[in-house]
Design a protein around this nucleic acid. Structure first.
Lengths: 202, 202
DNA sequence: CTTTTTTTAGAATGGGCGTTCTTCTACATC
DNA sequence: GATGTAGAAGAACGCCCATTCTAAAAAAAG
């Protein structure tokens, strides 16, 4: 019955993910993980090899269980700007569920903690960032249509800008307890995108 | 001759600041600080009391020696939107000086690492965020003039949004080695501000 | 039930941590 | 030159870390 093990492995990953997310890689100890996941030390080591490998597995699981569902409205076939709006709504809902301060984004949190030579980790963070940008680019391209005001280069820049701003909002969610502040920022970002799609004079 | 001591204290702070900035509070060890600052353990403890107090002192020094000079064009009397542009130029210049990846912003880095109950630290981060927002608010108010298109509430939201976006750009500077990507984002932000000051239809 | 394999709890290990304390050096004052 | 004092170096302390190992329990297979 290999099902049981693979299921407990996923529970382990989920617990570890939320622990890393909440307090950060360096602060989490293996003792914390044993306590939080309910899995023995030997079990963790035999399944993942060590703390760093476990963390990498958590980054992957974060993509699957957090980013993919939340970002689905953007990545959906034919998604328009309302898909981006829905994505922001998902983030705000997650913030409200947390009560008090948010946990931010695991990727953004990690980004500010990795040493310069953590190449594998940085590559995963880069992949996340590129994923978001690709989603926004697709939506913006579709909304812009064949004869919209934006060139491909402008769409690219706007998509990257959106990714960067979203990370800023995520990050700020760790500092404020007020969802209205976050909503104001995400509304502003949406308004900016709409205005540019309509062709704003600079 | 108390001069010597107070000067070495500032050197200590500067060294500690750059160490914390580069690799983050939790990763820096007292041994690192002794090595980097050239000050004895006893000296650090007698001057600052401990690692956390030293870090708080570094956050304050960061304001004085990094934020104040870089942000001066925004906080200057009568500063307009070109002051914000100059501020971004300062950040980009700092990024280019670092060669390779940037270090981001000490405040943003710290924000993603603090536990929920680190109240004194969080308060300093909040103060930084509010400082930036106040600077942007002042510029936007002046640019908007008496009969501009923006209400006070809109200015407030736009100022906060600018702060959040800037933090996003800072954060992204740890992920990219390409100054052009950062410049594109800051140019976009400037264009957004100008467009809204000109009265953009949403 | 017996045997074999897997999984567990937790002790052991070696090392690094923040902090304190002791010792020694260097210099100012007389 | 002798004495007193501040500062530096680094040893010492107790604790916690990631990782490994051991021995017992639990589960699976026959």
């Amino acid at each position: 019955m290999p099902r049981a093990k693979s299921q407990s492995r996923e529970n382990l990953l989920d617990s570890a993910l939320s622990t890393f997310w909440k307090i950060g890689y360096h602060v989490v100890s293996m003792g914390d993980l044993v306590r939080e996941t309910g899995v023995s030390r030997a079990g963790i080591y035999s399944d993942f090899g060590g703390k760093e490998d476990l963390f990498h597995a958590c980054l992957d699981r974060y993509q699957d269980t957090v980013v993919t569902p939340a970002f689905a409205p953007v990545e959906a076939e034919g998604a328009g700007i309302e898909g981006i709006q829905k994505y922001f709504d998902n983030l705000l809902a997650r913030f409200e569920d947390s009560g008090g301060f948010g946990m931010g984004c695991l990727v953004g949190n990690t980004l500010s903690q990795i040493p310069e030579d953590a190449q594998e980790t940085r590559q995963k963070l880069r992949a996340h960032s590129d994923r978001l940008t690709a989603g926004f680019r697709k939506v913006l391209t579709l909304e812009n249509g064949d004869h919209g005001p934006l060139s491909d280069a402008e769409i690219e820049a706007l998509a990257r800008y959106t990714t960067i701003s979203v990370q800023g909002i995520w990050s700020y969610s760790r500092l404020t307890g007020d969802v209205a502040e976050l909503r104001a920022a995400s509304d502003m970002l949406i308004a900016v995108l709409k205005a540019r799609l309509r062709g704003t004079p600079d």
